[in-house]
């Protein structure tokens, strides 16, 4: 049931995704702030399908050269392509403190045992500025294979970016900067190079009191 209703292709399903800041309170406790978060969902067949977005509307927000979003989509499979609009929660006090930990955690599951590679490209005006590549092995748990990228440290570029964003006095200014800031995550089977998931992330700043929010869309070409 999750196919078409959550971030899942026929080969791999995203279970959870979060970018966070951990600040030590005292020697034993941490305060964890979630900038963005996609929690566990358990869609059923009665749930509606995700809305779709024509991928051509966002091509220029992501790398367009060889191996860019268009090439990836043309290669397929099309059911692996998603757009996530995040309303990031920036309601946190940031100080330059080396005891702070900025991290990203994500989890995936599959019915297949494989090695996955996750490439995360941060883009400014559609051009890649930094890329992180991670390789993860599967763990067999409860009848399926689970992949965990646990507490991957956020890169310097992203930490600086968040700090600079926080220093802007008005939310509309932050959103104006975020209009040209995107992230493209591509998860592939390391051995076959098959695209398992391709997720295009775009951002605004949350105005909610309930923290980070998001919408998920299927990317299609009508």
């Amino acid at each position: 049931p999750w196919q078409g209703r959550s971030i899942a292709s026929s080969r791999l399903r995203m279970l959870e995704f979060s970018a966070f800041l951990e600040q030590p309170q005292d020697s034993e406790t941490f305060n964890k702030h979630l900038f963005v978060h996609i929690g566990q969902s358990n869609p059923s067949y009665s749930d509606a399908y995700l809305e779709s977005v024509d991928i051509r509307q966002i091509y220029d927000k992501f790398p367009e050269k060889k191996g860019g979003l268009k090439d990836l989509f043309d290669k397929g499979p099309h059911n692996a392509f998603f757009l996530v609009k995040f309303w990031a929660d920036l309601s946190v006090n940031l100080q330059d403190d080396s005891s702070f930990f900025y991290g990203v955690s994500s989890q995936y599951e599959s019915s297949e045992n494989m090695i996955i590679t996750s490439s995360t490209k941060v883009c400014s005006f559609g051009k890649q500025v930094v890329e992180k590549v991670e390789t993860e092995f599967a763990r067999f748990e409860n009848g399926r294979y689970v992949f965990r990228i646990h507490r991957s440290p956020l890169c310097e570029y992203m930490i600086n970016f968040i700090h600079k964003l926080k220093h802007l006095p008005e939310k509309y200014m932050m959103n104006s900067v975020l209009e040209n800031f995107t992230i493209l995550q591509v998860v592939t089977n390391k051995d076959t190079l098959e695209t398992l998931l391709c997720i295009a992330y775009v951002f605004e700043v949350s105005t909610s009191e309930h923290g980070a929010q998001h919408h998920i869309y299927r990317l299609v070409k009508d």
Binding site: E64, V202, E204, Y217
Partner: peptide, 24 residues
Amino acid sequence: GVMDQVPMRKRQLPASFWEEPRLT
């Protein structure tokens, strides 16, 4: 590309793209 410089607000995106969910 053809969409270069077109503000996101002027693109063909679902209405929900501009509606922040209010769920907790």
